[in-house]
Each structure stands twice: as structure tokens, then as C-alpha cells.
Design a protein around this nucleic acid. Structure first.
Lengths: 329, 329
DNA sequence: GCAAATTACGTTAGTGCTTACATAATTGGT
DNA sequence: ACCAATTATGTAAGCACTAACGTAATTTGC
């Protein structure tokens, strides 16, 4: 399942999907139990049952839909013989909805089914699971009700766009981010190998001490990406451990981190810069290419990683030549 | 807001409503930020962005929708210039979807907005609130995925319909049900008078101690109805405080409770049993009649209740005579 | 007391998705 | 090698809902 990995970003889709599942589930129960109703009728029917004669708008207001929706649904319920429409004597604009005798008896007969629905949900989600869901829903409904979500998003957008993307060198306070940001893509696409765990857990010892460097990208206070430059041998460096938080991709963090690492490589007078990666990481590979890395025909001899099936070397002149050739053709 | 009060029973509607709210919120943000995309496109676009060229079915599978939905959405994305369709060379049936150059650059530009969306949701729901929501969603998705919800509901339905309706006498653990079940119909049709509140709040003192009895109807573990027998004077009893949970009406709970109370009246050697009620409670009155109560021409003198406008006495012989007369005519 | 604004509702057109069906390409069993 | 099943996709029809509009009734402001 892919959607859950998008977390907050696809809430609408996930909620919709769940909603459809529940409607379908209840409809199936109604059908197999021979009840002549549909799950989407429930809020209206139940409201009428509890409140007696009510206007269309009142129902709409109560169940959080438009009056049109209620009006159209009422048509169906009238067709099904469950509800009747009356004109309000006091106010000629109003149309009063009420259960018919048949509606009332049919709903009474639905009792056991509703009980089964309720208990079935409890059973399959668990007492606490259901409790948690209902609480979360109630809280979310409250937040959404007063537009606070939209406002918060727009406010954050102002903050984020105003904030500059900055690259900062390693400092001990950022140590955990080094692990977190790399674990994210490793777990998603591969698995964390022992050699990763060592280095990610103690970057000062395995990266900085041997003459390497680490950079972090920070945006509006959030650490959203990292990248390491490892010293493999005198004047030979490896670009590695590049990770950008999934939810912050596409903001150029990778590019600026890469640029910072390359600048550092030059600053230290390096003469060879390479990287190992995996062919699955398409976006990353494209970015490496654009930065001046050139794909080598074979894997680097004696790689540290199982997952390495791509070997690139930083050769900006050669890349420019290749690009020029592509344009000419 | 009415829906939340329905808790589990209207999950579909509540989730749908929330889903729409989120879609609308994100769309509003996109619009005010001038992004040329719609919130519903997000899962597809994001998936293509992360995975490059993919088939329609793969996308559909990943985002949990039908291939038709993806196919139709792809049409729109092609119209918008964000996506292109290619035929797969290996497999002529397949239609490969991929971001166009424009699509890729547009999505890159969307980064800050996605960040804002994410952070906005965090801000307005709170760190823990969001965490709770996401966890609950994930758990629910898992449960729903494997049909366990439908199966559980059907299983419960079998249990509920097969379960015998049992009547049990009062015990302290059931005290709160006495209040709950009576408050339900009182609030619906009348209001809770002070005399009610006293008795419902402390049945041991006001019902049992003066020589009365209370019964509960239980179905598959759930307490769904109650009924009290009050001792008015030596050998004179009042039937009162009969309440059946609205969602369990029509299952015969009222009838068995009534029978239990009458049996208890006989067991105690009572010689007069009466009740006071209200003419609005049509179904209840019909039930009383069938059990042997006979409507009296006037209200009982010195009634405790404002709402009493019906006075009935338990006279089974007389009722039989009346019935016989009705048959003869 | 009467026009203007508001309210209540129904209707229409449109959207996003589904199911059902149609079609073309591929795979598999014999 | 060939016909039947399967797979991948597109298309059509339908459903639930919304937004937008129209109409009738009521309220408000002067």
C-alpha cells in the first residue's frame, strides 16, 4: 500500500477510501440481511427517527450536507415509501420531512442490524482502536470546522516561501537527523545494512574523523536533508549518505546539498570524487548527472554495499562534452 | 453537530465529510498559491514522480482506486500537460504514464506548498492529534482491507439474532442503564421531571427499598431495556419507568419486560397493578393493552407526573371479556 | 406599506468516482 | 500451434454529491 506512506499529504484520498469501504461494508450487511435500505440513507433516516418532522435544511445542517443533497435523498426515500413530504402550514417555503408508518416499522426492524454493525466495528477494530479512531475523528472534525486548517496551511506557506533554504555543516546537535534522513530512504527501497548502521549511528567517528564532511539542508527551522563527503584515500572522496526527507522532495534541497559537497571537495583539493548508488533511485541519479557525475560502465571494485549497482565519477568536463554532443545531433 | 453523536454508525458519512473538507482545503491552498493542480491529482502525480514511468494498473493498485479512475484522471493530466501516455513496446496492452518535462518542473515548484500543507495540518491538529489520526487511519485501513469488518458485522448479526432475549433483575452494576434507558424516551417526548431524576439516579433507595423491583432486558450482553415495579401501598403496585433503547425497538424487549414485571406482581401477591402514561406513546399503550391493562376513563387522582394523561389498570379478565365481545360483533 | 434582502427549497449541470462492458494483447494448456 | 483464459486498458452509464441558478415565501428597512 502506497497511500499511507504519504501520511498527511493524502489525507483526503485516504479518508475517502475508508469512507467508501465502510459504506460498502454496511451495504453488504444490509443486503445479506434483507433490509431494504442503503447505508447512505442512514443519517437522514436516523435523524428523522429521533427528531420527528423536520425541515430539509435542518436535516442538512445536522448531517453536514447541502440542502440539495437532502432534497434529492428525500426523493428516493419517498419513492421507497419510508418518508413523506408535507408543506409547512406556518411557512410555505418549508418542506417537512417525516417518516411514514412503514418507515417507522422498517427502521424498528433494523435494530438488530445496527447493533450488529456497531458490534462488528468494535470487534474488528478493537475497543481501543475504535475509541482512538472516534476521538481522532472528533478532534479533526473540530479543527476542520473552523477553517483553521486552511488558514494554518496558508500561514505556513508564507513562512516556508519566505524562508531561505540553507546548508549548514555538521554539528553534534544534528547527529540524529543524519540517521533519520538516511534511514528513511534505506528502509523504503532497501534495508539498513550493518555498515550503514555503524556510520549513521556515529558519524563523528566514521565520517568526520577520517577526514570527511557532512552537510544538512535546513528550511524554516526544519532539517530536511543531509549529505556526506567521505574521504576514501588521500585526495579521493566518496559522495554518500545523501537523503532528503520524502515530504520535502522537489524543493532543491538535494541540489544545494550536492553543490555544497562538491564545493567542499574542491576546497580540500580533492582530485577524485565518486559515488555508488542503485539504479532504482532514478531521481537521485538524474540529479547526480546534472551535477556533473558520469555513469561508469561497471560497478566499482570492492564496494561496501550490497545494494550498489551504479558507479558514477565526478567528471564535469566530460559531462559537458556529452551534453554538447546531444544538442548537436 | 449531529453526526458525531452517531459514533460508529455513521462512520462512512463522517469520513466522507472529512475527506471532502481536506480536499477542499488543499484545493484552496493550491488556488491561492497559484499552483495549476488539483488536490485529487496528488496521489497519482506523486506516485509518478517517485516511481517514474508506470502502467495505469500499477498506479491504481498503489493509490487504491480502480484502473478506470486512473485512466480518466490521466486524461485530465494529459490535458493539463503534466503527464504523457506512451504505449509499452514490450506489452501492447499497457499504457505507460509518465510526467512530462512540464509536469516535473511544476511538481518541483509544488514542494513548498506540500511542506506548507503538511505543516499546516500539524499546526491545526497538533503533533499528537495528527499522530493519533494517522495511527487510527492506518489501523482502520488494515482492518478494512481484509474484509474483516464485513465478516465481523455478519457474525455479530448472527449472534444478535440468535441470542435469546433474557430478563434479569436489578443489580448494582446495571444502575446506570436504568437512568440511560429512561432518559432516552423522556428527553425525546417530554422532559425529565425532578421526580424522575431522583428515582432514576438512585433506584435502590426509591424503588427497591420501598418494596419494588427492577428488571432489565439483555441481548447478547447488551442491556437494551428496563422496567420498574413500584410498591405504592401494601399489595398495590405501579408499573413504571419502562424504557427500551431506540435502536433495539421491535425486538420484543418491551413485551418480555412487561411479562416479567407482571409475574413479579403476582409472585408478591399484589392485588392492584396500575400505570400512568401519556397518549403520545402509542406503541407503548398498545403493548400495555395486549398485556392485560385496561384504559380507565379518567386520570388517576394525585398523579406524580405532569405528563400523565393516561391511566390504566391491570385487569386481564376484563380485557379478555372485551376482546371476546369484539370477536362476537 | 412596499421594495429589497433573505431564506427555503427544488432543479439542472457538472464532477469524481464506480461498475459493467468492450477490445486488444498476452499467456497457457493441450 | 492454436484456442481459451487472462490481463490491461478504455468507454459508457450510473450514482452521490456539489455549485449555481430559479422561484416562491418571508422578513427587514425605510
Amino acid at each position: 500500500m502506497y497511500l499511507p506512506s504519504l501520511a498527511q499529504l493524502a489525507l483526503g484520498s485516504r479518508l475517502k477510501s475508508l469512507s467508501d469501504h465502510f459504506y460498502a461494508a454496511v451495504d453488504e450487511v444490509y443486503r445479506t440481511c434483507g433490509a431494504g435500505v442503503e447505508s447512505r440513507w442512514f443519517p437522514v433516516l436516523r435523524f428523522l427517527w429521533e427528531n420527528g418532522e423536520t425541515t430539509v435544511s435542518d436535516v442538512a445542517q445536522a448531517i453536514g450536507q447541502t440542502h440539495s443533497a437532502v432534497s434529492q435523498l428525500a426523493d428516493k426515500l419517498v419513492d421507497a415509501g419510508l418518508v413523506c413530504r408535507k408543506k409547512d402550514a406556518q411557512d410555505g417555503r418549508r418542506s417537512l420531512l417525516a417518516l411514514t408508518e412503514k418507515g417507522r416499522t422498517d427502521l424498528s426492524a433494523l435494530g438488530p442490524i445496527w447493533v450488529a454493525v456497531r458490534r462488528g466495528i468494535v470487534k474488528s477494530l478493537g475497543e481501543e482502536g475504535l475509541e482512538a479512531l472516534l476521538n481522532a475523528l472528533a478532534a479533526t472534525e473540530a479543527a476542520v470546522q473552523e477553517r483553521s486548517v486552511v488558514d494554518a496551511m496558508l500561514a505556513e506557506h508564507a513562512i516556508v516561501t519566505k524562508a531561505a533554504l540553507e546548508v549548514v555543516p555538521y554539528e553534534p546537535a544534528l547527529k540524529d537527523h543524519f540517521y533519520r534522513l538516511n534511514a528513511q530512504w534505506l528502509q523504503r527501497h532497501f534495508r539498513i545494512e550493518d555498515v550503514d548502521r555503524e556510520m549513521l549511528g556515529d558519524p563523528e567517528r566514521y565520517v568526520l574523523a577520517p577526514g570527511g564532511a557532512i552537510f544538512f539542508a535546513r528550511l524554516a527551522g526544519e532539517v530536511i536533508g543531509t549529505c556526506a563527503l567521505l574521504q576514501e584515500a588521500p585526495r579521493v572522496y566518496e559522495l554518500s549518505k545523501m537523503g532528503v526527507d520524502e515530504t520535502f522532495r522537489g524543493m532543491g534541497a538535494g541540489r544545494v546539498l550536492l553543490a555544497a559537497a562538491i564545493a567542499e571537495f574542491h576546497r580540500r583539493g580533492g582530485k577524485e570524487l565518486f559515488l555508488e548508488s542503485n539504479s532504482r533511485l532514478k531521481t537521485a541519479l538524474r540529479m547526480y548527472e546534472q551535477a556533473g557525475f558520469v555513469l561508469q560502465p561497471s560497478v566499482r571494485a570492492g564496494s561496501h554495499y550490497e545494494r550498489a549497482d551504479v558507479y558514477m565519477i565526478y567528471q564535469p568536463e566530460q559531462r559537458q562534452r556529452a551534453q554538447a554532443a546531444a544538442v548537436r545531433s
